[in-house]
Amino acid sequence: MSTPPTTTDAHDGADPCAGAHPPHAAHRDKDAHLKRLRRIEGQVRGIHRMVDEDVYCIDILTQVAAVTKALQAMSLNLTSEHLRHCVAEAAVEAEASGRTELIDEKVAEATAAIGRLLR
């Protein structure tokens, strides 16, 4: 069994976005993300119930579209958060250390994530 990642205190100077799996507690809007996910989860349960009850397919598709839009909105919010925090921090660190590859890595990471969202 693997050990869960530890959170990093924002004041200790460590980059909370470093590595392949940054501590997710670093999200500034964690509570809002969780609230949105609970709402989406409820919508998906509603779709499940609609299918189980043989609701008209167009009504189900309408709800699927709503869940899809909700997930897209959350993805956009997380992307914005990543750009504002992780990429910006990498730019500051790259400038201070002269290691321009730091910003290139974060931009490549963000670009790949956006590419996965657009598929």
Rank of each mutant, 00 (worst) to 15 (best):
I114R: 05
D52A: 14
P23I: 04
I103D: 03
A10V: 12
A65W: 08
Y56P: 03
P5T: 06
H27V: 01
D12Q: 00
Q63M: 11
S2L: 14
R116N: 03
G13A: 02
H33L: 15
R45Y: 02
L117Y: 04
Y56V: 05
A18W: 10
Y56N: 05
P5H: 13
L37A: 13
P4H: 10
D29G: 03
L71D: 02
L118T: 11
A110Y: 06
G42T: 03
A90P: 01
T111G: 05
R36W: 07
E95A: 15
A94S: 08
E93S: 12
K69N: 04
R28C: 07
C17P: 00
D31F: 08
E101W: 09
D9T: 05
C57K: 07
H33E: 10
G19L: 10
A10P: 12
Q43K: 01
H85Y: 12
G98K: 03
L34W: 10
L102H: 05
A112P: 02
D59K: 09
A90M: 07
L83D: 04
D52C: 10
M74K: 07
T100D: 14
I40S: 03
R116C: 03
E41S: 13
V107F: 11
H33M: 14
A10Y: 08
L71E: 00
I114P: 02
T7F: 14
P22E: 01
V92D: 15
E95N: 14
P16F: 00
M74P: 07
A88S: 13
S97H: 04
S80E: 13
D31W: 10
L117G: 08
A91V: 05
H24L: 15
T79F: 09
R119G: 05
A26S: 06
V107Y: 01
K106F: 11
T6L: 14
L83R: 05
G19F: 09
I103G: 04
T62S: 07
A96E: 15
P4V: 08
E81C: 04
D12T: 00
L76A: 09
V67C: 08
P5F: 13
R119I: 11
H24P: 06
D54F: 14
A88L: 06
E109N: 05
T62C: 05
A26V: 03
L71N: 01
Q72A: 06
L37P: 05
A14D: 03
R99I: 12
E93T: 10
K69C: 03
V87G: 01
E95Q: 15
H24C: 15
L34V: 10
D15H: 00
I58M: 14
A25R: 11
E53L: 15
R36Y: 00
L118Y: 09
E41H: 10
T6W: 11
